[in-house]
């Protein structure tokens, strides 16, 4: 959070008073959140609490109804800011992987680098191969994504998101569509990224993972932040009755 931060450099992401409704149904009702460089923030909450909408708003996939979002101090909700250029600065990984089925693994990873960031095929391929080697999928570069396991597909999707070295990484329940035995390999990769210094905003249902990787946990309910703080406090010793009820439902033990 902002506590240990140099006042000169703005936080990577700062959200102020974010409001978003679908029709008459309010989804986010005034969210304030700030993420410093190299920090990992996990958003937890029940389905429909607005977690995904929060992430979509940050990536400008939803137009917010009120409030502001600052990326490196720049208000990206300002309609004068170019949307595509902003999105190119943010990496996103979706729950359903959303890999391109018509492109092989290598092209999936290098598409944005070549078409958006203007890298040559050689440079983009070199970066992609380095990453794919690191996640142990170097032998799959020519394969089409549908032939990979869910865990492999999701790791390819993560590499696709980080290949262009984004300023912020958004992870939207990236393990929810995976078999339990495949969750581990994806979470290990995220933990690696966190250690390597990525700035991450993620939503997750994996409380153990949030506790292991996140610096800060935010509990969202009914479109507002009910409780937030270090994981050991929010997950280990929640103060709000609503947080306790939620955690009891997820971990009945």
């Amino acid at each position: 959070m902002t506590t240990a931060q140099d006042p000169q450099t703005p936080p990577v992401l700062e959200i102020r008073g974010l409001v978003k409704s679908f029709g008459d149904a309010p989804v986010l009702r005034g969210i304030d959140l700030s993420i410093a460089r190299h920090e990992c923030v996990a958003v937890i909450g029940a389905s429909g609490s607005g977690k995904s909408t929060l992430l979509k708003s940050v990536n400008l996939l939803e137009q917010v109804d009120d409030g502001q979002i600052f990326l490196q101090g720049e208000d990206i909700t300002d309609p004068r800011v170019p949307v595509d250029a902003t999105r190119a600065r943010i990496g996103v990984v979706f729950q359903q992987f959303n890999r391109f089925p018509h492109l092989n693994v290598l092209d999936n990873v290098t598409l944005a680098a070549r078409k958006v960031h203007g890298q040559s095929r050689g440079t983009a391929t070199a970066t992609a191969l380095r990453w794919l080697e690191r996640i142990g999928l170097a032998d799959k570069v020519g394969d089409y994504p549908d032939r990979l396991s869910g865990g492999q597909q999701q790791r390819v999707a993560i590499v696709r998101a980080i290949a262009s070295d984004p300023e912020l990484l958004l992870l939207d329940e990236i393990t929810s569509a995976l078999d339990p035995q495949l969750v581990g390999e994806v979470l290990d990769l995220v933990a690696d990224l966190k250690r390597a210094g990525s700035t991450i905003l993620m939503t997750t249902h994996e409380m153990g993972f949030a506790r292991r990787v996140a610096d800060h946990v935010v509990f969202l309910s009914g479109g507002v932040i009910v409780e937030q703080g270090p994981p050991e406090l929010v997950l280990g010793d929640p103060q709000e009755p609503e947080t306790r009820a939620f955690l009891a439902r997820v971990h009945p033990d």
Partner: peptide, 24 residues
């Protein structure tokens, strides 16, 4: 965009809407 009834909109949002209307 629609607003849930009873909420007021900030100056920033009003300016954004005015700008978008102008662009339109």
């Amino acid at each position: 965009m629609t607003q849930p009834s009873g909420t007021t909109v900030s100056a920033v949002e009003r300016e954004r809407r005015a700008y978008r209307r102008g662009r339109q």
